[in-house]
Design a protein around this nucleic acid. Structure first.
Lengths: 204, 204, 204, 204
DNA sequence: GATGAATGAGCTTTCATTCAT
DNA sequence: AATGAATGAAAGCTCATTCAT
């Protein structure tokens, strides 16, 4: 697995990031303390600072990590030989799977990264830290337009729809407001997205 | 205006809420301090506690206030005699107007209320504090379905699309990622929403 | 009763003192706030300051009041035509009755006056504020000695025994450590005190 | 001495407790602040919280410490091969010595522990935190009864006499009301206690 | 690398007291 | 006499970060 080719120090960095990811997602950035993280890792606070020079740097590395990971998943979908409609379905499915299996990642995105912008400055401005992920969505969209499956419109109109919608559902699910399983929504939500974006001459 | 029929104490409460709303939205809940709020109001810290018994209570009252206010705007649209498609357009317009004219309100929703759920417990669980707003969206959706304009689907599928999309655009706009004016997006975004939700036999 | 010959202002002062006595005894001097007292009296804090110029003055007036009241009870016993042994019994009885019927008074003595000496300076030093009560004990003791019933010893040796003992029992009772009713201890405790103080040639 | 076998952290805890004991006794629990204690120790406020998690916990640990220490002194007396009458004398002597040499301890008992019961809850209810001391008095009393030296009576009647009396004298002494040296009272007070408790057939 | 005691600024909250009305 | 909003100093406590070991 990917941990194997890393140095011991890199492996420890990842371990710290995964633990901090969990705590930040569950309890929030400001309500999670460095001692909390160190304790869960059975590590001293002083030593934690040998791996990350500040709480902010740690938070930034985590969003880069998460963005890269989600980006990779979408990259695979972009590279697969399926229709635009099927790609939408696949992306929604991947996203909701993540929400259920690794909720920390999506929660981190919504409740740490998006909500505490003041933490993600100095090297994380704009989209810098989430570029791998945004780029893949952009590729998906442009290929859909080029192939004639999607209407040509402002990228952000499409991006906001796609990501806002999925994020919104993730939030509603996190609040335990859904009566059904989140994964059971995949079909209808993929359908809604497709209807919103498809070109008028695309097949239903 | 509405301030006139209030007692002096109620007016001061509203004044405090508006100032805190501004600071919380701009700087975040945890990074805004009570002394910050008091200073901006030219008021002593102690006196602020004569109006709100804790920072959390203040935050909760603000979300109730904002939800009521946005709910009222949508209520007017629901009551107006226009088509479902036009209602979608009107809601998007209202929302983006707010984003531009009173960005604090939308930011508060996205970055304070949604992001710091631990603050909104004890009287604000689930949707309690945003009910006025959610209810109006629900009414809009159900009337659209009843009239045959919208497909009948799970409410949250529609709600997530609508609100996730608008929230996503507000966020992107707040990040200064858009090259155009947010309000110039109203048409295409209303169109996307309508396409996603409309029933198959509705007119284009 | 005694309230009748007072001015309206004096009556209000007593009312405030009785309420503060209750709260101070139950919750302690520092944990009881002026707003607490005002609220229980259905009175504004500002107005309370028209009657007492500070929290400390209020506390001092209360101890004078309590000391005078207990002093009067003992005065009656001193003036009654009974033996020294019977007087001891009567004082213990009066004291334990008070503990049961008006526990605030004894508690105030033990937990407010004795414990927070820093509050009772400037006009309450030494025994000044409890003189009425101490004086009666002194009279009791000196008459007992003069009559030959009690051994002649240092007044404070006797006073410490008498009052320390009763105070100790009141404390133990307040802590709910006794299995029996406090009043059922009157006989044996009066007996112990008498044995400790009586002169060698007095009858058993 | 006993500090030697402790870890560095335990030694610091004791150092903090002794300093806090002094300040709490002299100035009271509520009028002594954490910054006061830290300053006297030449230590930062934050660091003090590395040793005790709250002001209340600190106060509780102190009473346990004091109770254990006084308990040990009485334990030695209980174990020594002297008459009941001599034991009473020894306990009074030990107690008055403490009052003179280490007044903080007795004052802490009387003015912090007994007076501020609300501080000593959650792990200090009833007698829990003073058990070592109370237990030794109980042992003394029961052995005295068993040996026929003391009358058999309710334990609390005897305990209240013994401890109330000594506490009362300590208080009077603390108030500078005595004209003589406290230690000069040992004989007559031990005598009074013995007279009160001894059995009728015991020798004078 | 690893530890965790130490720092100190800053947080939320409290409360006796004052004073304009 | 009566009100209660206003003050402001100070309290208990937290926590990111440092540093001697």
């Amino acid at each position: 697995m990917f941990m194997e080719q890393m140095s011991k120090k890199e492996r420890k960095r990842v371990e710290i990031m995964l633990t901090a990811l969990e705590l930040f997602s569950k309890n929030g950035f400001y309500t999670t303390t460095i001692p909390d993280i160190a304790q869960k890792l059975q590590m001293s606070v002083g030593n934690l600072y040998n791996y990350f020079s500040s709480k902010e740097e740690l938070a930034q590395e985590i969003i880069r990590f998460v963005s890269r990971l989600i980006g990779e998943r979408i990259h695979e979908i972009n590279n697969s030989d399926i229709s635009t409609k099927e790609k939408i379905h696949a992306i929604v499915k991947i996203y909701f799977n993540l929400c259920v299996d690794q909720p920390q990642m999506i929660e981190y995105f919504l409740r740490v990264y998006l909500a505490n912008r003041e933490v993600f400055t100095d090297g994380c401005e704009g989209m810098v830290c989430v570029a791998p992920f945004v780029t893949e969505i952009m590729i998906f969209f442009e290929e859909g337009v080029r192939s004639g499956d999607l209407r040509n419109q402002d990228f952000f109109s499409a991006f906001g729809l796609f990501m806002g919608y999925l994020g919104g559902m993730a939030f509603i699910n996190g609040e335990k407001m859904l009566t059904r399983d989140l994964e059971s929504y995949v079909d209808e939500i993929a359908e809604n997205i497709y209807r919103a974006l498809k070109s008028d001459d695309a097949k239903a």
